[in-house]
């Protein structure tokens, strides 16, 4: 593996230049635009549908961790199910409405996992109905990974944190980065497709464990890598926290591209609104493949750089 520390210390311009070359040589000249139903997206002549790809919480708004940056807020906008029967019934309604798939998520247990095992049969049923099913798993053990495999989920999404203090102070979780590395191993061992996420600036806007997370992810050989950016939410303990500078986000994206030249690299849903256009524009220069809900400025920039735009209503990891 190219020395990560060495790369990290290079100037941004140099990293962007190298990352762009790698993108050009390994991928077609396309920027994929992902706009699933979690947000209404209407831009550049494209409008998504409110039921094409929905987020479902298996815990309602309950979460044992109440992380500093979220406080359960992200669960509030999801559809809620409390039992396998409810999930199957929801799946049927979604199929009738022409939905393509679901992201099954939920609040975490004290151990940092989303309690998906109790929904194994329902998720398998959703797959039989023809829906695409991806999950937010949180930390998983071997049995969790086997259960996801039996359910036939198409992809597993989980945040990877590379700094112990961040895990304890932000996630309120008594775990270490090694636990996240093990979760990736369990999922890969079951042959599951993984799309790990790095949250840039998770430690009150500081860059702490992001590069360690990238190292762990690179080692796991994922199908896709998703970079998201701390977006301080109204009503959480992080309200008022300054998000990381766009240049720091771009640097991480560029290093991720250089270390993973052939892996799909996505800029996910979470981005601070004020810096969004700058982050997206720089991420395009850093060789990103897909951007979720991009700004008009980013779309224009992509076209100026010779990228064709392709819109999708799927989650960014499935595009």
């Amino acid at each position: 593996m190219t020395n990560l520390e060495e790369l990290r210390n290079k100037p941004l311009e140099e990293l962007l230049s190298l990352a762009w070359k790698l993108r050009k040589s390994n991928f077609e000249d396309v920027l994929f635009v992902s706009a699933p139903s979690a947000k209404r997206y209407e831009i550049a002549g494209f409008k998504n549908s409110p039921r094409s790809f929905v987020n479902v919480s298996v815990t309602g708004s309950a979460c044992a961790l109440r992380c500093e940056h979220c406080g359960g807020k992200l669960l509030e906008s999801m559809l809620s199910v409390e039992s396998e029967e409810e999930l199957v019934a929801l799946g049927k309604r979604l199929v009738e409405m022409g939905a393509e798939g679901v992201l099954i998520s939920g609040g975490a247990t004290r151990e940092g996992s989303v309690p998906l095992r109790g929904f194994e049969h329902a998720m398998a049923e959703l797959r039989r109905m023809g829906l695409r099913v991806i999950v937010h798993s949180g930390l998983v053990n071997e049995e969790d990974a086997r259960s996801l495999k039996r359910a036939g989920v198409e992809q597993v999404l989980l945040d990877i944190i590379g700094d112990e203090a961040t895990i304890k102070e932000v996630y309120h979780l008594n775990k270490t980065p090694a636990d996240y590395a093990r979760a990736l191993e369990h999922l890969k061992r079951e042959g599951l497709s993984i799309a790990p996420h790095i949250v840039v600036g998770l430690h009150r806007g500081e860059i702490r464990g992001e590069y360690e997370a990238l190292r762990m992810i690179t080692q796991a050989k994922p199908e896709a890598i998703v970079v998201v950016v701390l977006s301080p939410l109204y009503g959480t303990r992080f309200e008022g926290v300054a998000p990381p500078p766009p240049e720091e986000v771009a640097k991480l994206v560029a290093v991720a591209r250089i270390l993973n030249p052939k892996v799909r690299l996505n800029l996910g849903c979470a981005k601070p609104a004020k810096d969004k256009a700058e982050i997206e524009t720089l991420a395009i220069d850093a060789g990103i493949n897909t951007v979720a809900y991009p700004s008009e400025e980013a779309l224009k920039h992509a076209e100026e750089r010779g990228l064709e735009l392709r819109f999708s209503e799927l989650c960014c990891t499935l595009v």
């Binding site: 997206y41 969004k276 809900y293």
Partner: peptide, 29 residues
């Protein structure tokens, strides 16, 4: 809750976009 508004035009035309907005549930004009 709106996170962002930016005005994108100085000369307005009826029926045309003049601002971008973004919230937890919306990215629109």
């Amino acid at each position: 809750y709106l996170n962002y508004i930016s005005v994108t035009a100085e000369e307005l035309t009826r029926g045309e976009a003049f601002a971008n907005i973004e919230s937890a549930k919306f990215v629109s004009k």
